[in-house]
């Protein structure tokens, strides 16, 4: 019945009103809304990308730190090792030196002792000879008194001398 009736008025009005609505909404609603949504999506993407980058940087930094720590530790160990070697070296050297020095001193002391000994022997020999001369003098004096007694004395003195 009336359902399919064409109505020129409604066609004209709906064309005008719908197109008007379309242009108004396009200009004042859809354009800003879509632009705002797009911009927000971009900013969210940007933020996420930045967070990702920051995380990567963090990971890299941590890795670098670990590497640095390891390097440092290795260096420290190296230094300690070198120091220990140096110390051992120094101690050894000192020992060596002390040893040679001591040996030298002992050698010197030995030589000195030998010299003193020689000097003492020479002194002794001198004294013995002096003594022998004194004895001989005394013997000669007593011999002048008694012949037999002189003989005995000489003999006993000689015995003593030979002991030395």
């Amino acid at each position: 019945m009336d359902l399919f009736n064409p109505s020129i008025g409604l066609v004209v009005w709906s064309t005008i009103v719908f197109l008007l609505l379309f242009f108004v909404l396009s200009k004042f609603a859809w354009k800003p809304v879509l632009a705002a949504i797009k911009e927000r999506e971009h900013s969210i993407d940007d933020a996420l990308n930045k967070a990702e980058l920051a995380r990567d940087a963090m990971v890299r930094l941590t890795a670098t730190n670990a590497q640095l720590m390891q390097d440092t530790r290795a260096e420290r160990d190296q230094i300690l090792k070198e120091a220990k070697a140096l110390k051992d070296n120094i101690v050894n050297e000192a020992k060596q030196q002390a040893h040679t020095e001591g040996a030298k001193l002992i050698e010197k002391a030995k030589i000195e002792i030998e010299n003193q000994k020689k000097a003492a022997l020479a002194e002794l020999k001198n004294q013995v000879s002096t003594l022998s001369i004194e004895i001989a003098e005394r013997v000669l004096r007593s011999q002048l008194d008694d012949k037999a007694k002189q003989q005995d004395l000489v003999n006993s003195l000689l015995k003593d001398v030979e002991l030395n």
């Binding site: 609505l21 108004v24 909404l25 004042f28 609603a29 859809w30 800003p32 809304v33 705002a36």
Partner: peptide
């Protein structure tokens, strides 16, 4: 109504 609502949303 649609114009008012969506301009408000914008």
């Amino acid at each position: 109504i649609l114009a008012i609502v969506f301009i408000g949303v914008a």
